[in-house]
Design a protein around this nucleic acid. Structure first.
Lengths: 250, 250
DNA sequence: ACAAAAATCTTGGCATGGCTAAACTTCTTT
DNA sequence: AAAGAAGTTTAGCCATGCCAAGATTTTTGT
């Protein structure tokens, strides 16, 4: 609601977001190099920026040991992520932008929309809980409901689940899956799984309009699936929360 | 369609837009100071930037004489203006953002939306020809249909016309007019006009739901009206073009 | 009409944010 | 303990802005 902090530049927001996702992926401080690779800049630049983030009280950086977000930094990250995912859904749903292009557009817009516009978009969409890739959207209080997922290629024959999401950063994959008619929310069953990291044969969809696909390689690793209760949830419907991470107000 | 030119930063776009509007207001080269005042920066900064714009072939600047846009520069300006006005309408219409806030939001977004998003928004709105303040929207070929208007406070008693627009940069005025129930497209008749720059008494609207207001000062000067044919046009309907400025493709 | 005053514009120097490349330091591993 | 990996520092670049001082043009007063 308050005016955006002057020091909170786009770069600062991008760093927070990147640290957040890397941090939640591997449960330990994020290395300078990992950040540099993710942001596609040199390690030197990262070093300099981390010093600044520390001064802003957004991170705690132990030289040579890695960086962690403070509560304040996590809040920045979650706000940007909320913007990003709301925007993706909005672009796809309200403007029919193709599934594989919303990410790039949201990547820019996430930094510039006002809190007011964020609220209007959320309202227009009925306060959704997941974006078109199936990623959860932090709510207005910046709580993120994380459904634990597994990589599709970790499943064995006979396992059923719901395709939840795919890394949204790869338009190629999104386009490909869209071409196959596979979207987040689709229930499936694994029919075959070849050994030695080989491909899977998967049947998607309900009985009448079921379709089978062979999926392997990086694609099968990028596809995240929910094998929890097994109750197929419809696209964008909210499922029972498993883990709620509450982000306090500092 | 092509990727945005690297050199085409937000500042460059803002300069082009500012030069364009100042240029079309007074039909002569734009002075450094006028630009500085408009952009709220110092004349020194403007001087430096004009040198750069000249190098980019966006302007022709004659030192001490003022600056003019080249065809290329005009195209940049019109593109940004098209973005701005489409966004204003979109925010107001699709997201119900209040009339007096769309300007500030559009001011930022205009620089970052892709051509694809521009096209989707235009399509969603049915390729509109005017924004919520009544300002004309350049079409996809960047032609701007200019309806010549007069300031409300230049009218004499008995004159009729259609309220076309108000400078979109003043939220105060917009809020005030919205509060009175006056919007672009409303037909009106001047009932009284006091001498010496005094206020006007104006009747707005058709017979049954007509309402009268006393308007004067800066407000009456900022309100632009169309006293042309006198045929009231409905909100956002396209009126017969008076002047079409074609912007060639360089 | 023309020089002095006022207004306007340009130049030069400086600051900030973010980046790179390359040199240097610290940690890890063998 | 030496090599190599990982991280940091230093020096420098570019874009965008600022200010102060100098240059130029316009206005004004006699």
């Amino acid at each position: 609601m308050a005016a955006r902090d002057i020091t909170r530049t786009q770069a600062v927001e991008d760093y927070c977001k990147a640290i957040f996702t890397l941090e939640s992926r591997r449960e330990e401080p994020v290395s300078t190099n990992a950040l540099a690779e993710r942001l596609e800049i040199t390690a030197g630049s990262v070093s300099a920026m981390l010093k600044k983030l520390d001064e802003l009280d957004l991170t705690v950086h132990v030289p040579y040991r890695g960086v962690t977000l403070t509560a304040k930094g996590r809040r920045v990250a979650l706000e940007v992520i909320r913007h990003h995912r709301l925007l993706e859904l909005f672009l796809a749903e309200t403007l029919q932008m193709p599934w594989d292009r919303v990410h790039a557009e949201a990547e820019v817009l996430e930094h510039v929309i006002s809190e007011e516009l964020e609220a209007l978009i959320a309202a227009k969409l009925g306060n959704p809980t997941a974006d078109p890739h199936g990623d959860p959207i932090p709510n207005a209080e910046l709580e993120l409901v994380q459904t634990p997922t597994r990589a599709l290629d970790s499943l064995a024959v006979g396992e059923r689940g719901v395709f939840v999401r795919v890394s949204d950063a790869d338009p190629e994959m999104l386009r490909y899956l869209a071409g196959l008619g596979i979207s987040p929310g689709d229930p499936f069953e694994v029919l075959e799984h070849q050994p030695f990291g080989g491909p899977l044969l998967v049947r998607f969809g309900a009985e009448q309009h079921a379709h089978e696909h062979t999926l392997g390689g990086a694609l099968a690793r990028a596809m995240r699936v929910d094998v929890g209760v097994g109750s197929p949830r419809t696209h964008l419907a909210s499922s029972p929360p498993r883990t709620a991470i509450r982000e306090g107000v500092a």
